[in-house]
Design a binder for these strands. Sequence first.
DNA 1: TTGACATACATAGAATGTCTAAGTAAATAC
DNA 2: GTATTTACTTAGACATTCTATGTATGTCAA
Lengths: 113, 113
Amino acid sequence: MEPKRDLLKGSSGYLLLSLLEQQAMYGYQIVKELEVRSQGYFRFKEGTLYPALHRLEKSGLINGTWEVLPNGRQRRYYHITARGQAKLAEEKTQWLDFFTAVKLILQPESKGI
Amino acid sequence: MEPKRDLLKGSSGYLLLSLLEQQAMYGYQIVKELEVRSQGYFRFKEGTLYPALHRLEKSGLINGTWEVLPNGRQRRYYHITARGQAKLAEEKTQWLDFFTAVKLILQPESKGI
DNA sequence: TTGACATACATAGAATGTCTAAGTAAATAC
DNA sequence: GTATTTACTTAGACATTCTATGTATGTCAA
């Protein structure tokens, strides 16, 4: 199974918001969680994930808080914001619209439905 | 309805091959056909369509032939090649894999299915 | 205690594809 | 004769992902 990387473009934000709506997570955890849940399909690179998280935070859709583990190690947990939840709902609609449009191209006979 | 343009990236080739598999078309016709079929969702810009067609042709997935209308006007009709049909089948699989993976992220409860 | 590996975050630069925008040219409609 | 539509092309801006590297610490086995 050769993942089609370009499909990710424009979807990463959606996936991240979706994940963080379910629970707050830190970067490394997100990478692992995406991989486990997608059964190995998604393997976000750091160069993809962290810039994406920074973008989302800068846009006010998530916010990160440093937390210190008992062993002294630091993690940055990201929480979805109210604006993020609104954005997530918007993205969901856009996804559905997009899929609907693609299906209409692939199966022109369903035009009238 | 605000189309999410980035989703198009990585999908335009699939859409074009899919369209040209159904029948040979020329550029301007493709723009109109995509718009009609998708009920106005897709409105390919020239700067998107023609470079995409050139890429596909360069890769041997489609091939274009100039045809002259009775009125003297020229059109470049694009036909899908055997390699293009093979590629189309591959893209379809990649799409399904991608959708499956995304659904697993959005609905983790369906993990076991 | 050394080395290997996993954890955890960050960023520079290359690659890719879409968009805006402009250009060329001819047919058609008003 | 002027505007609109048809028809294709390409340069440059922009955004996102990738590769690759850097930093630093914790854990575990030899």
